[in-house]
Amino acid sequence: MSDLMNDLMNDDVVVRIEGLHKSFGHLDVIRGVDLDVRRGEVVVIFGRSGSGKSTVLRCVNFIEDPTQGTIEVAGIRLEGGHRTRRKRAQIRQLRLHVGMVFQQFNLFPNMTVLDNVLCAPRCAGRSSAEVTKRAKELLDRVGLADKAREHPIRLSGGQQQRVAIARALAMEPDVMLFDEPTSALDPELTGEVLSVMKTLSTDLHMTMMVVTHEMGFAREVADRMAFFHEGRILEEGTPQQLIEAPAHAETRAFLDAVL
């Protein structure tokens, strides 16, 4: 019985990356990446800067167009390469299933906190009363219900990043992408953001792909980790395997530097 459950779980792949390549001009940043992320799974991606970890994340929702390879999110399967008109519409459909949180928060400074969260659902044409109620619930979840009417510039970095998480959740995505969510924060503010991210996993069983150097968070929350090196996944496994007993010298050297 539990084997059957396991099989069902294993089949429920939310993000499937196959043969991903990405080059900027002559620079090959991603050189063949395959990765499956199952529903409810938290995958932490780490590696040196320039190893391609952020680029992989940005390829998942086509902020960067993959040069080659296939991305599949929530059953929408798209090839890399040139964007045709038809593909543009499909990309937009795919993005509605993906929430993204950026290193620099990228909140819209011309809107209030609440409007930031409401922006995407409104643009997708969802009804107003229900959407507003949900947006307030999300702000409450990240502990910022009282800041709804403020403008982002009045909030601290940690608060801004929590609003950005609420904004990304507003479309009820199947997967959340975090691109170094705490790297731009003062050290004393990283905790509040990481703890909100942790509750997404524990309370909502949210599927997450997280690019981060926070090994404490990885150890505690991640189901799986992937170490990126020169555009490829060099090593993949549970946090215990990768942090305690990395198989490759590069992984070991990197961990020695950040831990």
């Binding site: 950026f102 990228n106 909140l107 011309n110 922006c119 990304a168």
Partner: peptide, 23 residues
């Protein structure tokens, strides 16, 4: 970054320009 955030939220080009970038 603002355009990327709007893109990531699934906004159309017109929505991105009108609500986020042009203001």
């Amino acid at each position: 970054g603002q355009g990327e955030a709007a893109d990531a939220l699934g906004m159309t080009y017109v929505q991105k320009m009108r609500k986020v970038v042009l203001p």
